[in-house]
Design a protein around this nucleic acid. Structure first.
Length: 298
DNA sequence: AGCTCTTCCTGAAAGC
DNA sequence: TGCTTTCAGGAAGAGC
């Protein structure tokens, strides 16, 4: 599940492989995750790739305008990997794995291929204006957000802190794994309300978010199910997960069993001792929190 | 307005 | 053993 470190790893790989190459043609499989599939084949062939950047979890492939195409707009390619998306460069004669839905033929006999089992990803073309709009819709990058900006976006909010970490308009780049890992390191329970955090805790959380993301980038991301980089190689950070995927196993700090509950609609892993749960506001007695509203299907 | 919940999709794993 | 159900989650949209 690609989050900021995985997307950064893919982008760095593509940045080594793609600039200078031109798109020759585009072939499509299923296209329900693409904004305007026909536009890919109309506006990309003949254009040279300049560079590849990351905007939160989005991949921005910047292309030069087509020399002869004054009349055609020259938008860039934006890709989001969703849950199971892969963007890989391969020799054109190498067989593609199942669920490969977009092939960008390059001018050197290779292909940039997009594979996505569940098609939660996104792909669209965007000119400057739309890219600016995308940046404005998102918060600051989680890796570089300042202490002041992070406080401003979080302090006083009535949402659970976990929900805010996952909200890309608060900070961009954090997903479920790194949210849980950061909260464990900051010793903050995922269900606590942001408004009830001390400023010191907010600052510590930002510090841990950035530490965790930095370490994960160094290890080329976490490979839980599907993630691979632009060469098809898995990352190594999953070995350093302290809570994610460790339900029932001992906490690395205090040996208490790691628990998993649903917070903000997401599986959330935490140590019940290191990350004390929020106390009920005016709850009399200890109303058990085993609500997991399990609805029966009719 | 501000949050939370549901939906999309497939394959793996659990359940009966 | 084999079929059915559940679950995973990024982000958009619905619902409260």
């Amino acid at each position: 599940m690609p989050e900021l470190p995985e997307v950064e790893t893919v982008v760095r790989g593509l940045q080594d492989l793609l600039p200078g190459r031109s798109v020759v043609s585009v072939r499509l499989g299923k296209t329900d995750f693409i904004d305007n599939p026909a536009a890919l084949g109309e506006l990309l062939p003949g254009r040279k790739i300049i560079q590849v950047n990351r905007i939160g979890k989005f991949i921005h492939v910047q292309l030069a305008p087509n020399g002869s195409g004054h009349l055609k707009p020259a938008p860039d390619l934006i890709v989001h990997l969703g849950m199971t998306g892969r963007l890989v460069v391969r020799a054109a004669d190498e067989p593609a794995p199942p669920h490969t839905h977009v092939y960008f033929e390059l001018d050197d006999g290779r292909e940039l291929r997009y594979t996505d089992i569940r098609r939660f990803g996104q792909m669209f073309l965007a000119a400057d204006e739309k890219i600016t709009e995308l940046r404005e819709r998102l918060g600051e990058d989680a890796l570089t957000v300042s202490q002041e900006e992070f406080r401003r976006r979080v302090a006083g909010r009535r949402a659970r802190i976990k929900a805010l970490l996952l909200d890309q308009s608060v900070v961009r780049g954090v997903g479920n794994i790194y949210a849980d890992e950061s909260l464990w390191r900051a010793r903050i329970h995922p269900a606590r309300l942001a408004a009830r955090l001390m400023v010191k805790e907010i600052d510590r959380l930002r510090q841990m978010v950035q530490r965790v993301l930095g370490e994960a980038i160094r290890l080329r991301g976490s490979s839980i199910s599907d993630f691979v980089d632009s060469d098809g190689q898995p990352g190594g950070y999953q070995k350093w997960h302290r809570v994610y995927g460790r339900e029932g196993e001992p906490c690395y700090r205090c040996k208490t069993k790691i628990r998993r509950v649903i917070v903000a609609g997401r599986g959330s892993h935490f140590c019940p001792r290191c990350q004390p749960p929020p106390r009920a506001r005016s709850g009399r007695g200890t109303k058990s929190r085993k609500e997991t509203s399990r609805r029966r299907q009719g």
